[in-house]
Every structure is written in structure tokens, then in C-alpha cells.
């Protein structure tokens, strides 16, 4: 298990990198930048990474946070890997639908469902 950032809890579930947000709000630009850098640093040495990002505790996120998710998704795809998002609260999920990013990301209701899809 690795803990690469105070804003993230990063763990390994078999061959999947599971990333849990620890903050209710993902709004502050500096924090968002740090989150992006921490994830990139973790994924950089990997080939075809399988990544699960869990939003269980997240109550608010900004368009800047969405931008970081898009950047992470691009990195994962570039490496031939797969990114899935899970445990997104209904209010946050609505943000994905409004921005049509639900078409861009693979979203599962639960971490278990996402892990099954990544297996």
C-alpha cells in the first residue's frame, strides 16, 4: 500500500490501483494540481495501468477538478490502460451528465462493480 498524498489514499487491489479521495471538497486549485501530480507520479512508471478512482466522500468538485480527471484519463489511455470512476454521489454524478463527461468516463455505482469490470 502506498500513501502518496495527504489528499488521496492510494492502494493496490490485485492489479488495480485504487485511488480514494479523502476530502469532501475538491475545489482548491493548488490541491487539485497536487492531486493531479500525485496520480501522474504513481502511474508514470506503469504499463497499461488499471485504475479505479472512488469519490465516496466527495460532496463538491469544481470544473478544475474535472479537468484533472480528464488529464488523468488521457494519461491512462495513452499507456494502454483503463480508468473507471465509482461511488459518485448523485449530485456530483449530475455534474458529469450536465457536462456530458459521463460519455467520456466509465462510471460504476460501486467500487466492487468497477473492480469486477477491471478484472
Amino acid at each position: 500500500m502506498a500513501n502518496d498524498s495527504s489528499r488521496l489514499r492510494i492502494s493496490a487491489v490485485n492489479d488495480v490501483v485504487r485511488i480514494d479521495f479523502v476530502d469532501r471538497d475538491i475545489l482548491d486549485e493548488a490541491t487539485i494540481r497536487q492531486i493531479g501530480q500525485d496520480i501522474q507520479r504513481k502511474l508514470e512508471p506503469m504499463t497499461a495501468p488499471k485504475v479505479l478512482m472512488c469519490f465516496g466522500v466527495v460532496e463538491h468538485l469544481s470544473s478544475a477538478a474535472l479537468g484533472t480527471l480528464i488529464t488523468v484519463n488521457s494519461l491512462v489511455k495513452k499507456k494502454g490502460g483503463t480508468l473507471r470512476l465509482a461511488e459518485i454521489r448523485p449530485e456530483i454524478l449530475e455534474v458529469f451528465y450536465i457536462t456530458k463527461l459521463n460519455k467520456h468516463f466509465s462510471i460504476d455505482e460501486s467500487a466492487e462493480a468497477a473492480l469486477k469490470a477491471l478484472a
Binding site: S63, G67, T99, K100
Partner: peptide, 21 residues
């Protein structure tokens, strides 16, 4: 328009549409 298929992968430009929504 950030919801155009061609723009979905652009990381920025969603703030105004979220405000309007």
C-alpha cells in the same frame, strides 16, 4: 461548447456552462 464531442477531452472550459446549468 465543452459538450461537443470534439471538445470532451479538453480539460478546461466548463465553468460557464456549469453556472448556466
Amino acid at each position: 461548447d465543452p459538450t461537443d464531442d470534439d471538445n470532451l477531452e479538453i480539460p478546461s472550459g466548463r465553468g460557464i456552462m456549469l453556472m448556466k446549468a
